[in-house]
Design a protein around this nucleic acid. Structure first.
Lengths: 210, 210
DNA sequence: GCGGTAATGTAACGCCGTTACATTGGCCTC
DNA sequence: GAGGCCAATGTAACGGCGTTACATTACCGC
């Protein structure tokens, strides 16, 4: 981004480093992102990485910014305001879902909520159109935003360790009267359904009869 | 837990190791939990730690179990079912809030959702009393559970890095017509209020007129 | 050709989790 | 009491991590 490609020795630029780092994370883990391995992947020494990006934290910041750049533009569909807001939230959830490592990266750099500016603006426009403004609009935006991001965060962290998530049915002596409930709770969580129910509930609360 | 205190040399047991580890984390960070530092804190060698707890992952598991033991019993208050469920969720949120490191620890061991069994059982009882059972009850339990845990998780991760969370108001050229909204969005998030609004919305959806 | 500087390479520091191996010390058996 | 067993602790190392002081290269303008 800032390094002019003067030297044509082998032309390792900051973009190339960031791209390689993203590739490294997306093809493996966040743990796979080590400066040494990144240098090896680029066929260079670790000090070159440091020269181009500073340190590991700065590199992660750059990665987050790069990934976020792909999510800037928002397209809203739907007739009623409620449908448009639903589409907005679902779309945003989908995008976060498609970049699971973005969440992990942003989480590591404490930028989890900072990535939501475009969505905030779009939501504000829609709420504005329904007559919600000022503090009420802010509460609604915050609520919807938290719902989207936490839905994905929780699902992703939960799916990393599938062993302990399926709740043990034998631990509930008091519930044997409702075997269907026990079975439903022992089944894997349908996070998408939970998201949609929660979203619907939030919209019912915020929009009311609008 | 399993080591009989045969040798009275200086009596480092598994409990003592786990307690020291919890103290170490609660007085500092999760990052402060290193095997060497833990050994130094106990005035012993690192291999003793390994002998007693196995390795770092096993130690964290033990810590999570220990911390969870303090949260087993649930007390429900309130007259209407809705009030009782609200009390339940608020209470659970408060407990998680009081043990912020428990969340980080459980997160590291992918036990984020596994800690919810007692709350699940209590919720199931309440919902049962209102006539919600089977799959409907499961959906409600999941939704409430996700709401509680994600509320705390998001707030905790957000508060670790306060710099990037206050959204930059200048980034919204389209919203200058609603300065109150911009101001409200630039202010720090009131997570407790967001939690309560979301909880209210979820209950309105699940319980309806019940 | 020459100097400056952008870029890369070498080698080390201190930290981490983990482990092979040696050593201690209390108990039991003979 | 001597010897042995084995739980418990200590010593020292391995490989990997982020980071950095320092030396070295290669290109550009002069």
């Amino acid at each position: 981004m800032s390094q002019p490609a003067k030297s044509a020795r082998d032309a390792i630029s900051q973009e190339i480093v960031v791209e390689a780092a993203i590739r490294l994370v997306e093809e493996n883990d966040l743990d796979a992102l080590t400066m040494r391995r990144l240098a090896a992947e680029l066929g260079t020494a670790v000090t070159s990485i440091y020269w181009h990006v500073g340190n590991r934290d700065a590199l992660v910041d750059l990665m987050v910014d790069t990934l976020l750049a792909d999510m800037r533009e928002v397209t809203v569909g739907g007739r009623t305001p409620r449908a448009r807001i639903t589409s907005l939230c679902t779309q945003w959830r989908q995008r976060l879902w498609d970049h699971p490592h973005l969440i992990a990266l942003a989480h590591e750099r404490n930028k989890t909520l900072a990535m939501f500016q475009p969505m905030q603006a779009a939501l504000a426009r829609e709420l504005h159109a329904v007559g919600l403004r000022g503090k009420d609009a802010a509460v609604a935006i915050r609520g919807l935003q938290l719902h989207v991001v936490s839905s994905v965060v929780i699902e992703r962290t939960a799916q990393r360790g599938p062993t302990t998530d399926a709740t043990d049915p034998t631990a509930w002596p008091a519930l044997t009267e409702d075997p269907e409930l026990v079975a439903a709770l022992a089944a894997p969580v349908d996070y998408r359904a939970a998201f949609e129910v929660g979203l619907d509930a939030l919209l019912g609360r915020f929009l009311g009869s609008r």
